[in-house]
Write a protein that binds this DNA or RNA. Sequence first.
RNA 1: GCCCAGAUGGUGGAAUUGGUAGACACGAGGGACUUAAAAUCCCUUGACCAGUGAUGGUCGUACGGGUUCGAUUCCCGUUCCGGGCACCA
Length: 928
Amino acid sequence: MAGQTYNVTEDKNRKKFYVLNMFPYPSGAGLHVGHPLGYIASDIYARYKRLQGFNVLNPMGYDAYGLPAEQYAIQTGQHPAITTEQNINRYREQLDKIGFSFDWSREVRTCEPGYYHWTQWAFQKMFGSFYCNKCQSAQPIEKLIEHFEHEGTANLDVAQSEELTFSANEWNAMSDVEKQQVLMNYRIAYLGETMVNWCPQLGTVLANDEVVDGVSERGGFPVVQKRMKQWCLRVSAYAQRLLDGLDTIDWTESLKETQRNWIGRSEGTEMQFKVAGSDIEFTIFTTRADTIFGVTFMVLAPESELVKQLTTPDQQAAVDEYLTYVKKRTERDRISDRKVTGVFSGSYAINPFTGDNIPVWISEYVLAGYGTGAIMAVPAHDSRDYAFAKHFDLPIIPLIEGADVSEESFDAKEGTVMNSPAAGKTALDGFSLNGLSVKEAIAATKKFVTEHQLGRVKVNFRLRDAIFSRQRYWGEPFPVYYKDGMPQMLPEECLPLQLPEVDKFLPTETGEPPLGNAKRWAWDTKTKTVVDNSLIDNETVFPLELNTMPGFAGSSAYYLRYMDPHNDQALVSPEADEYWQSVDLYVGGSEHATGHLIYSRFWNKFLFDLGVSRKEEPFQKLVNQGMIQGRSNFVYRIKDTNTFVSLGLKDQYDVTPLHVDVNIVSGDVLDLEAFKAWRPEYATAEFILEDGKYICGWAVEKMSKSMFNVVNPDMIVEKFGADTLRLYEMFLGPVEQAKPWDTNGIDGSHRFLKKFWNLFWNKEEFAVTDDEPTAAEMKSLHKLIKKVTEDIEVFSYNTSIPAFMIATNELSQLKCQKRAVLEPMVVLIAPFAPHIAEELWESLGHTTSVCDAQWPAFEEKYLVEDTMKMMVAFNGKTRFSIDFPADADNATIEAAARSHELTPKYLEDRQIMKVIIVPKRMINIVMK
RNA sequence: GCCCAGAUGGUGGAAUUGGUAGACACGAGGGACUUAAAAUCCCUUGACCAGUGAUGGUCGUACGGGUUCGAUUCCCGUUCCGGGCACCA
């Protein structure tokens, strides 16, 4: 084992297999037993594939940029690079103890210039690209410029922030800065003034997936909406491809569903509404075009630009007051108290189908960021509109036959349409939906709207562009400088732009990001070097970007970098990429479903468009390992005393439950001396015991320091060995499932390994003979091969291990010491318990590593049962069973039946009419 | 509210295609070895009923129905737990 490496090269003579774990953020707390779960599962798979002859890439690295190191730096002044380095060393030490087969020569760290070179490079490429909807691909921005020079915005079908209209002449007449501003509207990485999630406590903006329930995911601080100029990635351009790609990959249905929800495709209609008494026209988006005859009011988002235009002078004061109120509310407020608020704008819109005047309201329940920020409200068939109409006493017109809308709206898309138009009224061009089903009505309305140019069919996505700036120090710097207020990219050959030194990691006094503290953070365009800020003259020396990139930047393409980690000419060479293609098995937590797993799919699709990545989807199969929860222990202190009472007796006293360190509890029995030594205040503790023991209470909680339920893998390895830890983690339950850690059961796994060992070791020496194995021994072996092979393929390791245990028990009873049986068993156990396998392999007289052995193939002939069972059942019950030889013919079966109770008399007595023999397991069915 | 995935002994969980439910392990109880302890090994362990006993019977996979000779498995409905999305029009 010593000195063995698992380093691989692109060996074209062998088939490749790429196994990947989500790389960890090296936190100061080190690994607990939950972290290695996924690594163990994927390591088993990697070792299995290697034994099958695959060239397996199984790399590991560190997602090294992150908030905790920066916050530690702010508190202590310790440079985050130092903290990160220390934590990485600790992680490596812990990982090495568990015996993973990682190719450490390919290790990456996102914070190293050699790595983030390519993060910056990809960002620059995104800046230099736009998204063409027609060819569904990213294209160089030069192509767009060419289009503008010839046609302006005519015949343009591209992803954009706003729909702009200008002619070729207008474009050509623009100044350079104006052109730059226009292009920003189309770039895939763009500087955009948008509403962002601003977290004042963290002093930075956050992406949508970093905000949970209106507070920051890290720290749980309030988040407010703020208009800011930030770098953004046009992820939304890829929405349809991100959705379609899900059908091509082997992920769990629930994870795909989560991504589908997040992408939020919705097919609907955009319709234009004119404003009464003016030539203003505005557009709304609806999925229920069929409800156009039930519209009784319109609603604008408070942030909508239309608010200014549509507010009448006599409503101005009320509207202003409302806008002030809305501005004060944080995201959290809006979620927690969902009260109905709003104000009338004073204007009326005209229903294009009926000509009716409809009041236009303003309310925060309409979101500026989705659709057009304006809706048509149909209170009868939308619960939100219904609540609004009830609150402000607006009319409600039911449109579905039989729907009772006196108490609540009827939101379901079913039923027969009525009142469309209402009796005695006529709509534009005699249009009517009455009598149609809702589905038909939606289709008919879409058709009518398109033909009469009242609007268009439109697909909307909930997926927002990713905000890509963070006001932090410990992240990738943008390779960007500013000239005339417009961002300029550093020349490609000047990358990487290295993170500068600062003396303070906090924002500057003027509120600029931490990089504002850097003294040497200016770009000299002549020498193409970073120079002192004092040299900035805005002619040849310019200020550099002060924001840094977010956490997901470095993790978005690391799987490509592992293919060719030391290449300083390219992110990945075409040769390496051609060989490794994409990740075959990706293992990690499902908490990344809407973050990393969306961003890296987007990032990879962009690189695919560029021709850098050969596969459109980066991760073919994905397995989410479940979280390992902690199992906390409690002691019960009698109030106002230092006396602790055992679990069974606690109800007789008035007690306070207190968390106790699980490491001084064994099988829920407290180690009293260790408890007294645990904390000074317990040194004089007294105990009320039951049966001479102190029994602790327990509960399943998140594994965390504060609950004293963190179990460190190092301790397990020290006590039982890495193989026991590996085996036990797999035996705990299905890999995908969340489950509590319970050290109690670990003895079983440990005992099994000892038993396995004792198949070879007869207390004095390794004893294995070259005798031919018996059929029974071969059967035991081949059943095991089949079971383990199939289980590994579908990742159900927890059922594989019992198979080992059964086989081991069977063979130990057979006093098996046959080489032909034991050698394959060692190979089989090798993925699960590599250390013991390696030692046994050597003891069997092999000079090569067990990794060079071949995974055994099972032979069908040993699997066939020698006896079959015939089951006799009637009245829904199995009555008895008869054994007979497996190769029996019908006469033999009949004879077997007759020799038992299944005689004609038996059948007659029970009024059994007929016996059916079905194939498969030869089960007999007896019918009355 | 919408969507997805679940529910099996005291516990974690097996049963992969509809075919003897509860593999394997933990825990518990009993026993062997031992001066003793540790270690190891063996037996019992879903519930209930009958029997001294071997054993036999009934019930039993959240709940209520259905399909089937036969359902943990398939279908319909209900309850509960977990996850995702959520003023997304």
